[in-house]
Amino acid sequence: MNWTAVRAIAEKDLRTVLRNRGVRVPLIVAPVVLLIVLPLLLVLGGQALTANSPLPMDSMGDTIIGRSLTSQEAATSSVTTPGTGQWAAFVLEVFFAPLYLLVPLVVATVIAADSFAGERERGTLEALLHTPTTDQELLTAKFLAAWTPAVVVGTVGFVVYCAVANLAGWPTIGRIFFPNLTWVLLGFWVSPAVAALGLGVMVIVSSRVESLQAAHQIGSLLVLPIILLVVAQVSGAIRLGPELVAGAGLVIWLVAALMVRYGATSLRREHLALRL
């Protein structure tokens, strides 16, 4: 493996992404909205909405924003005392758990689409194929160019979200309560796996579509399982505990590995050259 070539191609792709406003904006907007704006709105906004309630907060028991936490919901929270603190903890720890996974997924799919389908659309792929890089080096470079920033953004997002969650929860919880074990697993085990899965899917998608736009459109369907997870979590159908998250992470890693392996077959030089 010629790591100098791998690094040169990966850096080239990363520079392209960072300098391309059309790619850079969603990479910034998605984490900011999901991990900063929405949590603050839901928790602090919820408190503001109930501030003018004729009933004092304490007398509302566990009834916040029009409904009560179910016993199952309450059980998922690290704050067990009923009241606004429990709702804040539920929103920040439980509701946002699946949503957090959107961050590495979006970053990985956006960059991967640009790196594979975008490169072909811009016509730059042929020049790359005429270099002495092997198919494996090309795949490794493209993988690193998309996976590394997804993991970095996911990790930074995790750290920022920890700060946001504790800040938003402070008025009602009164102590640093975040992250719990489930979130640590999400941040450092599941998030990289989701990024790899998104990347694997995009490698396959990009090898079969004609344009960057089509790759983006199909790639956007990847968020559907996460939306379903949010619904299942909020409706109480499943509960994201440490065991489930650890197991799910393992499954996602395995599926991602299969996807990347399958996608690699479409990255053979001859196959790519036929589609130039």
Binding site: T4, A5, R7, A8, I9, E11, K12, R15, T16, R19, N20, R122, G123, T124, E126, A127, T131, P132, T133
Partner: peptide
């Protein structure tokens, strides 16, 4: 088919590194 977001010099240096 240059990498449009790279400078001409960077375009050359990437291929030199490869």
């Amino acid at each position: 088919a240059l990498d449009d977001f790279l400078t001409p010099r960077e375009n050359l240096e990437v291929y030199a590194a490869i």
